[in-house]
């Protein structure tokens, strides 16, 4: 029993740490620009594949490859905004469609290059082996990832509340017109926001995937729908909400998996049902403030 509880807690935290990192950027972009970026999951997936290929081409240069890949993804995020999102900002459906098209394009490109088979980027495991705690053993890479995720989330919170860019981001997200009147270049702030979100997705992927695996080019959609679910739960545009929502989702998943009868096959259904219930009872989510159009 104690093992089951430990198991639930650890995997809940692990799941939550990934979801929190991915949804944070996603939610930020939504909060600032009202933009649903469907390519967000594709950034995550693309990071994984670039790492895999980078590792095969430059076997010895681990850190350089990671940094290089993260920079590439951030730039792709910026280009997505400049080339695709910005011209269509006024139409909700247009942005959704075009970013969906981009995600689909990236997925298909990888499919053509490497097929549907899955691969592992094991060689990036920085902390092999396991650590035992209360009779429960944990993979060191996962422990590292959880800590790193917490650190990044805290740094990010600090950045949003203290830095100049962070303050303008908050200003734009609270009242865009007022922020523009105050002399903030809203488009530039939005550009940085999309780049930051891509950066966070790339960081999440490069820390998490070495301990997981690339499960095929379609994996981006799984993480995209999970982060949808998380930000609905937490409230769209709310940063606290997406972190808390991420962990709640993680715990619901691992709880279902371990304690409910036939749980493993329901593990990804129950969270969606929770979302539907939340949507119906409290449509703006746990921490959502603004009434959205």
């Amino acid at each position: 029993m104690i093992e089951d509880i430990m198991n639930m807690l650890f995997n809940g935290i692990l799941n939550g740490a990934v979801l929190a990192l991915i949804s944070l950027g996603y939610s930020l972009v939504y909060g600032v620009g009202g933009i649903m970026n469907m390519a967000h999951g594709a950034y995550f997936m693309l990071t994984g594949y670039l790492l895999l290929w980078g590792m095969r081409i430059f076997p010895g240069m681990l850190f350089l490859t990671v940094i290089f890949v993260i920079i590439i993804i951030t730039i792709i995020g910026g280009l997505t905004y400049i080339l695709l999102i910005k011209p269509l900002q006024d139409t909700h459906v247009g942005v959704v469609l075009i970013t969906f098209g981009l995600a689909f394009l990236i997925e298909q490109w990888i499919l053509i290059v490497s097929g549907t088979t899955s691969a592992s980027i094991n060689d990036y495991v920085l902390f092999p082996g396991t650590t035992e705690f209360l009779g429960y053993s944990m993979f060191n890479q996962y422990i590292f990832f959880i800590i790193a995720s917490l650190v990044i989330v805290s740094l990010f919170a600090l950045f949003i509340s203290k830095s100049k860019l962070g303050k303008s981001i908050r200003a734009v997200s609270q009242d865009r017109e007022a922020a523009v009147l105050m002399g903030i270049n809203a488009n530039r702030v939005l550009l940085y926001t999309v780049m930051i979100s891509a950066f966070l997705a790339a960081i999440a992927a490069s820390l998490y995937l070495p301990g997981a695996a690339l499960t095929g080019p379609g994996m981006g959609w799984t993480y995209l729908t999970s982060s949808f679910a998380v930000i609905i739960l937490g409230g769209m545009g709310s940063l606290v909400g997406s972190v808390v929502g991420g962990y709640i989702m993680g715990f619901v998943t691992s709880f279902t998996s371990i304690f409910l009868p036939n749980g493993p096959s329901w593990a990804h259904v129950v969270p969606l049902i929770v979302i539907l219930i939340v949507l119906i009872i409290r449509p703006r989510g746990l921490f959502g403030k603004k009434k959205l159009r």
Binding site: N7, F10, N11, N15, V18, Y142, G211, A213
Partner: peptide, 8 residues
């Protein structure tokens, strides 16, 4: 499923 599920 993803890695956390497999771990569970």
């Amino acid at each position: 499923l993803d890695a956390a599920d497999m771990n569970t």
